[in-house]
Design a protein around this nucleic acid. Structure first.
Lengths: 361, 361
DNA sequence: CTGAAAGCGCTTACAG
DNA sequence: CTGAAAGCGCTTACAG
């Protein structure tokens, strides 16, 4: 545990005051180039390490950003995290990460800890069941907050996806393939995102005058295991759905797997669509048709939204950002070739990835 | 941006000195219970938030631990990260996370940043190509370091896996299935872990007097794309291997996928074994046989190793920990049923997951 | 262009 | 059992 030199030591070595050293380290133009060079040489020589904690304490700003993620077992959130971390690092911020595992109590503890660390701002994907006044409370702490993926009112910066549009798009795709009995594997009731996704599906069905049997809305855990359970339910229904829209790729992976165990193949026995377009969706057997909003793009926008709030030039009077990406459908083999009414779709689709652009009507 | 109360404010409100407040917040037994209660009540009332940065600055210890991960796109490292973060949080430490994406320059920048944040300790999975003197350099900073997954000499605390044992085990499994022409999809040359894995495979082959054709050692990227390329190579070989040991599950996923594209099935056309047992390995089509060392257990051990070093009671004279887990083989469908010489193995394996315990001879 | 002084919010001996 | 004082490593007005 050798003791690290401080600006005081550099000041002594360079023969200047510590004020001067501090200004040099901040790249202040007030210091003469010659003096600055002398200081930098001394710092180099002594192996100086800037103490950001001390600077944050004395100065007004901190350079730590907290990121609170609800579910790192879902690769989508990992992709988001990686993008956010990259953009923030480029702007000189360090990312303090915490994982709540969808647990509100853990989330409370974690937020407290971030507050104690004096984070400059927070990016959070709130755990399910988060009390709706939490964003206001965080704001009352004076910490800028950007919500990702899970909106909580229009009063807080939010970066997410237009889920009802996306799920309508996915359902339309299946209808265009000739399917009329389409199931939804997700939550029957639940939080905002779950409702939006279910609603998008229902809207598309209704707009084609297709009736939705109550049992087609299958309430399952949002995991591969939930997807497997959904398949078992579907194959007990009479008449049974020929297609299923899944809450996310994790559920869809379970669907693909259970079909395989039954000796059936997605795309033939059952058309399957997921949501998130995680990297693995490209390599499943068969490859998964899924909604893509671009984790990388969403992470970038979330970071930039926060950085704008942290900019000392910001007046804090800008209205809340409410950005909802329009997802695209990436068509792969899991959703084509079963209904067979659109041969042009089933010919190339298994080999050629095509993106159906989301277009609002 | 309302201003947060400090211990000074609490001291005034409670009618004591700030020394007393500080001691109460540290749960010191020196303060009379009555006084302590009074102080805590005042803190509660004012909405006091402990400023850990100030405490770290004045005190000798910091409560931030840095975690440097080379590849978060590999779910194995995410599982490791989650376990580490959980254990550290339970001990009152906050985790500062950084992702290097296998880039040594990024890693250097990130380590610098962690040093500036005055982390109490570091857990690192070094990027490929990390200079071998880095652990010594970090130690010279006075920051305890635990390496995970990728050893760099015996002089630094290390938690990893006995890779050569594991890959021998995987290869033995394939030999026991009757395979004699077994390929290896990974690196032909490379860093320590790559060499250990390849060596384990070669050792098992040699111990059964099986010759390894040079082309069977296939040099590919350690990604699904690399796995796909390996399959294409294998099917051009004459005679062709009937089984392949993959560097990790990511490569194996690509293998399973390319086989599927060719209309073939892993376990029938080609026996496939992976390494890491990531959660998704259970849900691939077909499910993947793979080596498991337990990301959760490894993460727990790594955290505990670091916590022991951070314990103020530690004398710093304990010898370096060198922990290498003995992996187990989790047998699933991807590796059985193709050679058919051991019918008892191929009957239940596709449905029943069995663990073959690793036993050193 | 540079220095002396005060202070960020805590903790830690040292007195009493 | 509690308080007064010094100081952790910086930054920030304020002088000059």
């Amino acid at each position: 545990m050798k003791t690290v030199p401080t600006i005081q030591d550099i000041a002594a070595a360079a023969g200047v005051s510590k004020s001067t050293v501090s200004l040099v380290l901040q790249q202040s133009p007030k210091i003469k180039a010659e003096t600055a060079d002398k200081v930098r040489a001394a710092a180099q020589l002594l192996g100086y390490v800037y103490n950001r904690g001390a600077a944050n304490l004395r100065g007004t700003r901190s350079t730590i950003v907290g990121m609170v993620i609800n579910d790192l077992t879902n690769p989508f959130f990992v992709e988001l995290l990686v993008a956010i971390e990259r953009v923030l690092a480029q702007s000189g911020y360090t990312t303090l990460m915490a994982h709540t595992a969808e647990n509100v109590a853990t989330q409370t503890r974690v937020l407290q800890s971030m507050r104690e660390q004096n984070v400059a701002g927070l990016i959070m994907s709130p755990a399910l069941g988060t009390p709706e006044q939490l964003p206001d409370e965080i704001k009352s702490w004076g910490i800028p907050l950007v919500l990702v993926m899970r909106p909580m009112g229009t009063d807080v910066d939010t970066v997410g996806v237009d889920n009802s549009f996306g799920f309508a798009l996915a359902t339309e795709h299946l209808i265009a393939q000739g399917h009329t009995r389409i199931a939804f594997a997700g939550n029957r009731t639940g939080y905002a995102v779950a409702n939006q996704r279910r609603q998008g599906y229902l809207t598309a069905m209704a707009s084609h005058a297709l009736t939705v049997a109550d049992e087609w809305i299958i309430d399952v855990e949002l995991t591969p295991e939930g997807g497997r359970k959904a398949v078992r339910s579907i194959f007990e229904m009479r008449p049974r759905p020929t297609a299923v829209v899944c809450y996310n790729d994790q559920v869809a992976f379970g669907v693909l797997h259970e079909l395989d165990r039954m000796g059936k193949r997605a795309g033939k026995a059952l058309a399957v669509v997921g949501c998130d377009n995680v990297v693995a969706a490209e390599h499943t057997n068969p490859p998964l048709t899924t909604l893509s909003a671009g984790a990388d793009k969403l992470g970038t926008i979330a970071s930039e939204t926060l950085l704008a709030r942290l900019d000392p030039a910001a007046d804090g009077k800008e209205p809340p950002v409410q950005y909802f990406a329009i997802p695209q459908l990436v068509v792969r083999e899991s959703s084509v070739g079963s209904a067979g009414r659109h041969p042009h779709l089933s010919v190339d689709a298994p080999r050629t990835e095509r993106r159906v652009a989301g277009q609002r009507q």
